[in-house]
């Protein structure tokens, strides 16, 4: 709600310089989250550095290794409908299109999607405690209304979930986040990008002040034949996931040669358990096998009352998403169960 300065920067270097020099400065890309947070008195930028015109970050390109690079400033809609993405990474297209609304996807950028903040009720209310907002103030969700909250990887300080759909697919696809900052470039494996809350729930991810996401690399493993994004929510569109699953396989005959399963709506970051995926390797596509993986993924899950259902629901959703991945052409708008 506060007033702020505004400046457009058209190079990565100048943008980084502007933000790293001033800890009250923030980048402005699509704005769909930062403007929302500012209007709720949750973000208080004193300077917004508009990076939308940095042309170098606004393209999707093929990489030499047969993967592709998604510019951080490409809009979510443009990414989902990009012919390269649609053809080679349809799982990503489906996940993006399951999120938000068409208007928001027209505005929101790929980099911004990674950096969006939780939709926890309590985080969004500046008048109540929240350790993510005010470190040490406590988490009212733990003993409050927590139907939408985390069952995996939470801490006594925070049980918020990360709301992105796109990132669930990016986790499954083992994307790499390319970052530039005052200290130079970094390439962060997707699983290391977001954090669990632990003692520092105020930190959503491992980006440092002044660092900017420049692009996201999708590796050559494309999973373009057997994939599904399943999203379960309280209305059929325009709602955040209570549980979502990105599932993808590579097959040799009727045997799974490689599996990827990532969950959304259950943790402070997209949830992946590589050991569970290993379990499926060399196995047939049976419900029993999917259930094995599901049990493994949910091991250690803790319900907090209202959200207890997420544990059995997530298991069933994993099994269903795995089944759906075998018939991707059946998938329906809104990423609901298609079988």
């Amino acid at each position: 709600m506060n007033s702020f300065d505004y400046k457009k920067e058209i190079t990565v270097d100048s943008a980084i310089k502007a933000v790293s020099a001033d800890y009250k400065a923030m980048f402005l890309a699509g704005g769909t989250n930062i403007i929302d947070l500012w209007k709720y008195n949750l973000a208080h930028p004193e300077k917004l550095i508009d990076i939308n015109d940095i042309a170098a970050l606004s393209i999707i390109e093929q990489l030499d290794n047969d993967g592709i690079r998604l510019g951080a400033l490409v809009k979510n809609a443009a990414t989902a409908y990009d012919p390269l993405v649609e053809k080679h990474y349809p799982l990503l297209s489906k996940a993006i299109l399951a999120g938000a609304s068409a208007q928001i996807r027209n505005m929101a950028t790929n980099g911004g999607n990674l950096l969006q903040r939780t939709r926890c009720y309590y985080f969004y209310d500046p008048d109540v405690p929240c350790s993510k907002r005010m470190p040490g103030s406590g988490c009212p969700a733990i003993k409050g209304r927590n139907r939408i909250h985390a069952v995996l990887g939470a801490s006594e300080h925070c049980i918020a979930v990360f709301p992105s759909d796109m990132c669930v697919a990016l986790a499954a696809l083992e994307a790499v986040v390319n970052v530039v900052g005052p200290e130079g470039e970094r390439n962060i494996p997707f699983s290391d990008f977001h954090r669990l809350p632990g003692h520092t729930p105020d930190l959503d991810n491992n980006l440092q002040q002044g660092e900017i996401v420049t692009s996201i690399d999708l590796p050559p493993g494309k999973f373009s034949k057997h994939y599904a994004y399943l999203k379960l929510r309280d209305r059929h569109s325009y709602a955040f996931a209570l549980v979502s699953v990105a599932a993808a396989f590579e097959m040799e005959g009727s045997t799974i040669s490689k599996a990827r399963i990532a969950l959304g709506g259950v943790a402070h970051k997209p949830w992946r358990v590589p050991e569970a995926e290993e379990l499926l390797k060399g196995r047939k596509t049976t419900v029993e096998n999917f259930a094995l993986a599901a049990d493994r993924i949910l091991s250690g899950a803790i319900g907090r009352g209202d959200n207890d259902f997420k544990i059995p629901l997530a298991k069933r959703a994993i099994i269903r998403a795995c089944e759906m991945a075998l018939e991707p052409e059946m998938q329906i708008p809104g990423a609901g169960p298609s079988l």
């Binding site: 704005g31 027209n106 505005m107």
Partner: peptide, 20 residues
Amino acid sequence: TVLCDGRRILSCLTLAVSKN
């Protein structure tokens, strides 16, 4: 919702100055 350069966007989450 308005159309900005032909695309539908939400004017509430858009800073007017950013659409120069």
